[in-house]
Nucleic acid binder design. Structure first.
Length: 298
DNA sequence: GTCCAGTTAG
DNA sequence: CTAACCGGAC
């Protein structure tokens, strides 16, 4: 166990607490108070945080998948629109990929939209229409990894799971790993576990994430960079990612030929366009019918 | 240019 | 282990 040092930002008091096998009760208490205080004063509100929404596991699944690598403020509007169009798993299962992708437009990471269809099928056919509450089961679904599985289990069922995402990581780096670099999640997780307020895990994690956002604003995201697994995003302009996005939007409008697509991507090499399209076919986005490419049926 | 309630394939 | 994935916002 590393040295623990607690330095609240909203107080002049500085606690130092070193211990051999975990945080002391005093530190845990002080830390929780700091997080809860902030949350009760400055906590963010989102549609998916209201009881109307978190009480419906389907909605938690949708929101958590949308929230992967996509800012919460940007998700909230799209989320509500999406729910109007697709209110439950059945409506997703009945929809075509093109319809789901259309509603997904603007969120990015479109593979997530394709995964939703598979998830809906699995829930309806293999789980009697119910979203499992256990992490192990949730991880069986496509595009639901450890973090999203724990998030769904926590937010939909209020279970005391231990998990880390970017804002939570920032909070623990800030309080307990001051001046340290290359900190692994494996070092942070025990602290998340020890400090977890099991009386209300759902809201505790809301509070943690809000505190993380607050820290990132205050320190211009210098803290997160001390995480071992922190990775800078690759430039977007001129990337194949950008090209893929354009191609998907073009084909979403109507079936297109290779020539047509290439023409619309003027700054992209034709060979490159062809290769990207091949990738997108492999990944299940596109299908080819003669000369024309369209969104693959599902 | 930087980042985001991450996951997956290689 | 790393690279790729999408696109809007600041």
């Amino acid at each position: 166990m590393k040295q623990a040092r607690l330095v609240p930002d909203r107080s002049d008091i500085i606690w130092k607490d070193y211990s051999s096998d975990g945080l002391t009760k005093t530190v845990i208490k002080a830390f929780r108070e700091e997080i809860w205080n902030y949350y009760h004063q400055e906590g963010r509100e989102f549609p998916f945080r209201s009881p109307r929404h978190y009480r419906v596991p389907y909605r938690v699944v949708i929101s958590e998948i949308m929230l992967q690598q996509t800012q919460a403020t940007r998700v909230q509007g799209k989320y509500l629109e999406f729910l109007k169009r697709f209110p439950d798993f059945k409506s997703i299962e009945r929809a075509t990929h093109a319809e789901i992708l259309e509603a997904w437009k603007g969120l990015g990471y479109n593979r997530r939209a394709l995964a939703l269809k598979k998830i809906a099928r699995m829930i309806l056919h293999d789980h009697g229409g119910q979203v499992p509450s256990e992490i192990d089961e949730l991880e069986e679904f496509p595009w639901i990894g450890p973090n999203t599985a724990a998030s769904i289990s926590t937010f939909a069922f209020n279970l005391p799971n231990v998990f880390i995402e970017t804002n939570i990581r920032t909070v623990y780096l800030h309080f307990f790993f001051k001046d340290e670099k290359e900190v692994m999640d494996a070092e942070i997780l025990p602290l998340v576990k020890q400090t977890l307020d099991t009386s209300n895990p759902r809201e505790w994690y809301y509070a943690l994430m809000d505190y993380g956002v607050f820290l990132k604003k205050r320190y211009k995201n210098k803290i997160a960079k001390r995480g071992k697994q922190y990775k800078r995003a690759a430039p977007f302009t001129g990337s194949s990612r950008q090209a893929r996005g354009k191609i998907l939007r073009l084909v979403l409008q109507e079936p297109r030929s290779l020539d047509e697509i290439t023409k619309h991507l003027g700054d992209e090499k034709p060979d490159n366009v062809a290769s990207i399209i091949n990738d997108m076919i492999k990944e299940g986005f596109l299908s080819r019918d003669g000369k024309m490419y369209s969104i693959k049926d599902s």
